[in-house]
């Protein structure tokens, strides 16, 4: 089976963890990754170059109806929700969910819908509970789910919410998440 998409969601303090994860992905990594980070409006212009400087794979900002290409890292723009449809991103400006736009829940949920077993969701450090429900839906549909260990999280709220929602398939510290994704998505001959 080929995985279609990995989504990584986080808020407060997640950039440091993201750095660790992305550094572990080799330039040959094929499965596209979308990064959803809660932040103030207008900061995506800063985030993409910042992520690029820590990552061997090309980083791109998402545009509406943009094709999801293999071997790329995508950044969810601030003030938009990101949904997926067959092979493309679709944006929405519906009301924030859990005070968040982009909302991790909304992306996870649409991945559950469209990709099911071919989707991977990751929740990193962050306050609040965004991501837990969507991740539960993803897991219910056979997707793989990974949650950062609450003990390693600067803000354990989101990881804890995901674990108590029964959404966490794997609970891992930051340095093990990247290698786990590499191993999981390795295509066997």
């Amino acid at each position: 089976m080929t995985y279609a998409l990995i989504a990584i969601g986080g808020s407060l303090g997640s950039f440091k963890v993201l750095q660790v994860i992305l550094a572990a992905l080799p330039p040959t990594f094929k499965v596209p990754v979308v990064i959803i980070v809660h932040r103030e409006r207008g900061q995506e212009a800063i985030l993409a170059p910042l992520v690029q400087s820590h990552c061997a794979l090309p980083v791109a900002e998402i545009e509406d109806k943009g094709r999801i290409e293999p071997g790329r890292i995508y950044i969810a723009p601030s003030d938009y929700h990101v949904l997926v449809e067959d092979g493309t991103f679709a944006l929405s400006v519906e009301a924030p969910l859990h005070h968040a736009r982009p909302s991790i829940d909304i992306t996870f949920e649409s991945m559950a819908d469209y990709y099911g077993r071919r989707a991977i969701g990751v929740i990193l450090t962050g306050t609040g509970q965004d991501g837990a429900q969507g991740m539960a839906a993803l897991r219910q549909r056979g997707g793989q789910t990974v949650v950062q260990t609450p003990a390693s999280a600067e803000a354990p709220g989101m990881p804890e919410a995901a674990i108590s929602a029964g959404a966490a398939g794997h609970v891992l510290p930051p340095e093990e998440i990247g290698p786990f994704l590499v191993k999981l998505t390795e295509e066997r001959p």
């Binding site: 949904l83 449809e85 679709a90 929405s92 519906e94 909304i106 649409s110 819908d113």
Partner: peptide, 9 residues
Amino acid sequence: YAQASLKRR
């Protein structure tokens, strides 16, 4: 309409 967003609503 785009399916993903419409389904959500």
